[in-house]
């Protein structure tokens, strides 16, 4: 499977093309996707676009569900 690169919080991570942003981030060892309103670290729960725990900023779009978006080479992501 082809490997592409994502830029997550300024760091380059490798991802398999076709995978979701959430799966790629988790596989690269990223554990915190967002900080909850009371300050807790949060990461994906439902994996299917329902729970909104996997929200990150993707290409400038805030509150994007990383589990429902497929990786693109050079994608810029911030948590």
């Amino acid at each position: 499977m082809a490997t592409i690169n994502l830029l997550v919080n300024g760091r380059v991570i490798a991802a398999e093309s076709g995978s979701s942003v959430a799966a790629a981030m988790l596989s690269s060892g990223i554990t915190t996707f967002r900080t909850s309103v009371s300050g807790e670290p949060r990461a994906p729960l439902c994996g299917m676009g329902i729970c909104f725990e996997c929200r990150v900023t993707i290409e400038g779009q805030d509150h994007a569900r990383s589990c429902q978006i497929t990786v693109q080479d050079g994608m810029v992501i911030t948590t």
Binding site: S20, L26, S27, T31, P41, P44, G47, M48, I50
Partner: peptide
């Protein structure tokens, strides 16, 4: 969707749904 029942620690990263981890594995989670 899955039914999630709250318990202490269910909000920790690394705690997924059962279908949740299934979906993530199917989209590339190692």
């Amino acid at each position: 969707r899955e039914l999630f029942l709250p318990f202490p620690g269910w909000t920790l990263p690394g705690v997924f749904g059962a279908g949740g981890i299934q979906a993530l594995v199917k989209t590339g989670l190692h």
